[in-house]
């Protein structure tokens, strides 16, 4: 039997109740699908005395489209998103990213909100209590130094959510609720390039909703490719999402985002430079260079960081070329 630390499980029925419970506690964590959080709690990570379960909140189950676009509650499961015909049609990159998470049984309960807020990962962090104790902990938890970059003053644990880059290229906005009210911000604002403080959420805040702009009328293609050793279960060694539109053989819009390489998902900047151009081999090389410059994996996985960088660079270029080719066809 696995010995979990003691905690109280709160199971509120409404969002308001959840926020009220949270407001009454000094310390608590929200739990939804639990596939990341419980795995960590089992290893003595992310300790908490209170878990507030969100999967029962109907507000977070909202999943509907209107003229403004698509609205996905934070507790909607990755399986629902990955199998949804409309998402597959209009937001293919999101369906692909959702379906690339872990295995099917994980995705049946894992939620979009949970995946966005997925804890950063590192070889020296995602280990048992005994293991971490034997290694004097690490900067992220119960220790002083970063074992990946020992001279560093910051933690380099890697952001490893698959859906974030997909939602970034779709220009998603999220709604955040907390004891002090709710706000709506671009998804970009959720993340912070730090392995420890990787989210900008204030204490007690949670992501409640993902808003996607209405599907583009122009010819758009989007896709997600994941670098991993096995074709199931594995977290991304790197992942890249790309969305392109094209008219008359010329790029009219190009968005790219990368996960798994840094402590934050990376929205690749400088993609505007390709607008109006034919994405030929030369432009492809330039695009690859952009990705290369903006991603900086370190040894947070057993797979070598240099490789992860080279591979994600090559994958980005091929993915974009394939999308444009599909649009042309």
């Amino acid at each position: 039997m696995e010995v979990l630390p003691e905690f109280k499980l709160h199971r509120p029925g409404t969002l308001a109740e959840a926020l009220k419970i949270r407001g009454s506690l000094d310390e608590a964590r929200y739990i939804s699908g639990g596939t990341d959080l419980l795995a960590n709690i089992r290893r003595g990570l992310t300790p908490t005395e209170n878990l507030i379960e969100l999967s029962g909140l109907s507000e977070l189950q909202r999943f509907e489209a209107d003229a403004d676009g698509l609205h996905i509650g934070a507790a909607v499961t990755l399986a629902t998103i990955g199998n949804d015909p409309a998402i597959k049609q209009d937001y293919a990159v999101l369906a692909e990213a959702a379906n690339a998470v872990a295995g099917a049984t994980h995705r049946a309960v894992a939620t979009i909100g949970g995946n966005l807020c997925l804890d950063t990962r590192c070889l020296f962090y995602n280990q048992s209590q005994w293991w971490r104790d034997s290694n004097d902990g690490c900067m992220k938890y119960e220790g002083e130094i970063c074992h990946v970059v020992p001279t560093s003053k910051r933690c380099y644990a890697a952001y490893s959510g698959d859906t974030a880059p997909a939602l970034l290229v779709l220009n998603a906005e999220i709604e955040i609720a907390g004891p002090d009210g709710s706000r709506r911000v671009p998804l970009d604002d959720l993340f912070n390039d730090d392995g420890i403080d990787y989210l900008t959420l204030a204490p007690g805040e949670m992501v409640t909703m993902v808003h996607l702009p209405a599907a583009s009328k122009s010819k758009t293609a989007s896709s997600y490719t994941k670098l991993r050793i096995r074709d199931s279960i594995d977290f991304p060694l790197a992942g890249v999402a790309v969305r392109v539109t094209q008219e008359n053989g010329k790029v009219t819009a190009l968005d790219a985002a990368v996960t798994g390489t840094n402590s934050t998902p990376i929205r690749v900047t400088g993609c505007d430079a390709f607008v109006g151009l034919e994405f030929d081999e030369e432009q492809g090389q330039k695009f690859a260079k952009l990705v290369q410059k903006q991603t900086s994996p370190v040894q947070t996985t057993t797979t070598k960081p240099q490789y992860r960088r080279r591979a994600v660079t090559a994958m980005s270029k091929t993915l974009t070329q394939n999308l444009l080719q599909a649009l042309s066809a």
Binding site: L123, R230, T301
Partner: peptide, 11 residues
């Protein structure tokens, strides 16, 4: 110290 002592890192 065995880094791959789990079924994610031992593939």
């Amino acid at each position: 110290l065995l880094i791959s002592g789990n079924m994610l890192d031992y593939r």
